[in-house]
Design a protein around this nucleic acid. Structure first.
Length: 398
DNA sequence: AGGTTAAGCGCG
DNA sequence: AAAGCGCGCTTAACCT
């Protein structure tokens, strides 16, 4: 079965949402935003549109003379979250703006809009999956986008509570654990990484132990946090400069961590170098399954674009292989559901996660089989691990 | 009226 | 001079 067929079926299945719950959240957010807006006007000494970056610039940097921390690509002073966080240490207004931004995002993008996407006939939300827009091979979800529903903050997670199963069914979520780092271990063949995954270690803790020369049990929370940033940075081709700004440390210190990492995981260092060489020599990189990303600017004269292509070259094999794997899993799962004539349905895909709507009677079977199907799509040099959750809504299923 | 770009931010 | 990959959506601001 082609993956396109699974996408059609998933789009047709759709997901049930509790519009009344979202409406209540919208009202709550709206009231809080009004109060915050008044505070902001008070603090600024004049009314202004809190949604307007231009007006915020005028107030913060012209009127109040706060220091400019960063500029946007067009040269105007940036008012993004990072800048406001920094200014908030010394001034009251940036903190207020941040609170407003957080709520405005949730209300305008999610709680107000999702109920408008409910199909009149089915009573469900039906996204569209684009199979051929993301260069790495990932899917994209649009109209509405169900791949960027909030989860990282407590307030945001309330929106997930509105993604529900009908009476008699449950929401089941199954996601690949640390999939891109596992793929990095496979592609690089690095002995240390392979061993850590073979032993099913906490990978960030294991990295911290190596980089900081500590016993696994002796790794501090901060050391683990550093290692996590380093691990993600590797996947994205981050530089010492980027790592330094992420960790708020000196660039030289960041460089030391990177050197230390590559000394402990020489296979990864070797893989990164070879990937850049491959990209420059052939003009493309590819995933484990042979999906190619062409990089026309990898040898270009524009330094900035060339470096961008190098980072894309590093990232694409990992992100792309993960995309290949979950597509294989979707085909396997859909095929299984059909041949077994089950009533469980695939309803969403979020890059490394599959979401199903499962009748109570099939819950036991799906809990047993879904991870097996997902883990069995390929034999890599490391085991694939799937974490499964279940509940009456999408939030509980995590 | 309708389209596009910039800035910003939600997710993996 | 920039500095971390891949997406989509909203609002403001600007353009035709």
């Amino acid at each position: 079965m082609p993956v396109r067929e699974v996408l059609f079926k998933m789009e047709r299945n759709g997901v049930m949402i509790d519009s009344a719950m979202l409406a209540a959240q919208s009202r709550e957010l709206g009231e809080k935003m009004l109060a915050i807006e008044a505070q902001a006007h008070e603090s600024a000494g004049q009314p202004f549109n809190l949604n307007s970056p231009k007006q915020i610039q005028e107030i913060l940097f012209d009127k109040l003379q706060l220091p400019v921390k960063k500029k946007t690509p067009s040269g105007t002073p940036s008012t993004d979250e990072e800048v406001l966080q920094e200014l908030a240490l010394d001034y009251p207004l940036p903190k207020i703006l941040l609170e407003y931004r957080g709520m405005a995002k949730l209300k305008s993008t999610y709680t107000d809009k999702l109920p408008l996407s409910v199909n009149r006939t089915t009573g469900r939300v039906h996204t569209s999956y684009s199979q051929a827009v993301a260069v790495t091979g990932r899917l994209a979800s649009n109209d509405p986008n169900l791949q960027n529903i909030p989860i990282r903050t407590a307030e945001g997670r309330r929106i997930r509570e509105a993604f529900i199963a009908p009476p008699g069914s449950r929401i089941v979520s199954a996601d690949y654990s640390q999939i891109e780092l596992r793929i990095m271990a496979h592609l690089s063949g690095d002995a240390g990484l392979l061993r850590a995954f073979a032993n099913n270690e906490d990978i960030h803790r294991a990295t911290a132990a190596e980089v900081f020369g500590a016993e696994l049990a002796a790794v501090s929370n901060e050391q683990r946090r550093y290692a996590k940033v380093i691990n993600f940075g590797l996947i994205y081709g981050m530089s010492a400069f980027g790592l330094a700004s992420q960790l708020n440390i000196e660039r030289s210190a960041a460089q030391q961590y990177i050197d230390l990492y590559f000394a402990r995981y020489p296979g990864v260092k070797n893989y990164m170098d070879n990937t850049r060489l491959q990209a420059k020599a052939h003009g493309y990189v590819e995933t484990v399954f042979g999906r190619r990303l062409w990089l026309p600017e990898i040898n270009g004269a524009n330094g900035m674009r060339r470096q961008g292509a190098e980072r894309a070259a590093i990232n694409a094999p990992m992100q792309g292989t993960a995309a290949d794997l979950i597509k294989l899993a979707m085909i396997k799962v859909q095929h299984w559901l059909e041949t077994e004539k089950l009533h469980s349905r695939l309803i969403m895909q979020v890059h490394d996660e599959l979401v199903l709507e499962v009748p109570q009677a099939e819950l036991h079977l799906v809990r047993e089989m879904l991870p097996k199907l997902m883990c069995g799509v390929a034999e890599l040099k490391v085991p694939l691990l799937v974490e499964l959750g279940e509940g009456k809504n999408w939030d509980e299923a995590h």
